[in-house]
Computed example of a mutant assay.
Amino acid sequence: MIIRMAKEKDAKKIAAIMVDSWQKNFKGIVPEEVLHGMDPVKTSKVINKSINNGNIFVAVQENKVVGFVGVGENRIKECPKWEAEIQAIHVNYDVKGSGIGTQLLEKALTELKNRKYKVVGLSVFESNPANKFYKKHGGYLVGKHQKNMSEENLIENLYEFQL
């Protein structure tokens, strides 16, 4: 498996992985109408912008994109000292637990460190089992915030990484 910077031709596959991941991993966490309303075509347009900015990396196994990580500016106002944010990390459901997520997280942290960032963060739904993953890999829980989705207030844990 290799991890490389995403290319425009990867956008549709990245979008498909993201939508599938949300629909499978966040069932019972995120309102059903949000999950059912996700559109890979619209998602791929947003992803293309991040690809063009050099902010998405993909995991490729046997010539197939099987996961991705996106980095970018900090969107979490409750954590103004974060210099950047890991905005998304998803892998194909059938390769979940194989270490690809760990490699993608490490790639994101290395890339952000190379960009001279010292403090980065990410947010994770409070009831998402991935909280254990981020703690295991050095994330420090520094707070919580509410995210409104379909008129439901969801709690997200805020993790910080010192680079």
Score class of each variant (00 low, 15 high):
Met1Gly: 13
Met1Val: 11
Ile3Lys: 09
Arg4Asp: 03
Lys13Tyr: 01
Ile14His: 07
Ala15Asp: 12
Met18Cys: 14
Trp22Asn: 02
Trp22Glu: 02
Trp22Ser: 02
Trp22Tyr: 06
Asn25Glu: 05
Asn25Ser: 09
Lys27Asn: 11
Ile29Leu: 09
Val30Trp: 05
Glu32Ala: 15
Val34Cys: 11
His36Ser: 14
Gly37Phe: 13
Met38Asp: 06
Met38Gln: 10
Pro40Ala: 13
Lys42Ile: 03
Lys45Trp: 05
Val46Gly: 09
Ile47Gln: 05
Asn48Asp: 14
Ser50Val: 02
Ser50Ile: 03
Asn52Pro: 03
Asn53Ala: 04
Gly54Phe: 00
Gly54Met: 00
Asn55Gly: 09
Ile56Gln: 01
Phe57Lys: 00
Glu62Ser: 05
Lys64Gln: 13
Lys64Asp: 09
Val65Thr: 07
Val65His: 03
Val66Cys: 07
Gly67Glu: 11
Gly70His: 04
Gly70Ile: 01
Gly72Thr: 07
Glu73Leu: 08
Ile76Cys: 15
Ile76Leu: 15
Ile76Tyr: 15
Lys77Asn: 07
Cys79Asp: 06
Pro80Thr: 02
Lys81Met: 08
Lys81Pro: 03
Lys81Trp: 11
Glu83Arg: 03
Glu83Phe: 07
Glu85Ala: 06
Ile86Val: 12
Ile86Arg: 00
Ala88Leu: 04
His90Asp: 09
Val95Trp: 12
Ile100Gln: 01
Gly101Ala: 00
Lys107Gly: 02
Ala108Cys: 14
Glu111Trp: 00
Glu111Val: 12
Leu112Val: 05
Asn114Cys: 13
Lys116Leu: 10
Lys116Trp: 09
Tyr117Glu: 10
Lys118Ser: 15
Lys118Cys: 14
Val120Asn: 09
Val120Gly: 13
Val120Ala: 12
Leu122Asp: 06
Ser123Leu: 02
Val124Thr: 14
Ser127Glu: 11
Ser127Trp: 08
Asn128His: 12
Pro129Gly: 06
Ala130Met: 03
Lys135Phe: 04
Lys136Glu: 13
Lys136Asn: 13
His137Val: 03
Gly138Lys: 08
Leu141Lys: 12
Lys144Asp: 15
Met149Ile: 15
Glu152Pro: 04
Leu154His: 15
Leu154Met: 15
Ile155Gln: 08
Glu156Lys: 11
Tyr159Asn: 09
Gln162Gly: 02
Leu163Asn: 05
